[in-house]
Amino acid sequence: MISFNGASFAYDDNIVLNAINFDIEEGAYLSIVGENGSGKSTLIKGLLGLQKPIKGKITISETVKIDDIGYMPQTNAVQKDFPASVYEVVLSGRLNKLGIRPFYSKKDKENALSNMEFLNILDIKNSCFRELSGGQQQRALLARALCAAHKLLVLDEPSSGLDPLACDNLYQALKDINLKQKIAIIMVSHDINRAVESADYILHLQNKQLFFGRTADYLKSDIGKFFTIRGNR
C-alpha cells in the first residue's frame, strides 16, 4: 500500500533521515520507534506529503486517496486554549469529505457521532475541548482522525503525556480499529514495549533505518533485544 524507496529528508542541508526503504500492505499495523530526534516525526511528515524528500521517492498505491487518510498529530499550543466543543472538533475530521459543499450533511454528523460512540466519548460531546483531561483530548483527536480515515490512520506519539491506564485504553482502541475496521495503522511511539506488543511491523529509526520487519523478527534481532530489554529496565 505504501512504499518508501531510498527516501531521504533534510532540514537546511542537515540530513535527518537517510535512505529509508520499506513497504507495508493494506491493513497492516506498523510502529515506528527510535529515540528523540531520530527522524520519526519527519518520516510521518514525508508520508503525509507535508515534507518533500530530497532524494528517493514515496509511493502510495492508487487505491488510497488522500481523503482516505486520517492523521492524529501531537497536540499543539493553539489547542490548549481553543474554545471548541468535542463534537465540533470530531466533526471537523469530516472536512475532507465536504469538497465544495459548505456545510456538513446528516451523514457526516452520524459518522462523527458513531466514531465518538466507538471511542466512548459520546457523554462528553458538548464539553469544552480545552477543559478535558489528556486522555479525553487524545480520544477526541483520535475520533476526529477516524472520521477522515478509511484505509490508513497515521499517529504521531498518541500516548505522550497519558497515565498508564489511559495509555492502555488508547492502545486497545487502536487494536480494535485495526482489526474491526480494517484500517492500516502507522504510529510513531517512544514507548517501545507497548509498540512491540501491538504492532505487526516495527521500523526502528536512528536518522537511518536500523530495522524494518515483522515484530517477531525484531524481538529476535540484536537491536530489538537491546532496545526492548533496556526499555524494560
Binding site: 507535508l50 492523521y71 471537523s92 472536512l95 459548505p102 476526529r144
Partner: peptide, 23 residues
Amino acid sequence: FIVFYNKIFAVTFDENFSRATGV
C-alpha cells in the same frame, strides 16, 4: 465567512491535520 465557516474552523484548530487529510 458563512460559506467557509467549517473550513475556517478546521484550519484554525489544526492546520497540519487539515493539510494531511487533503484540505
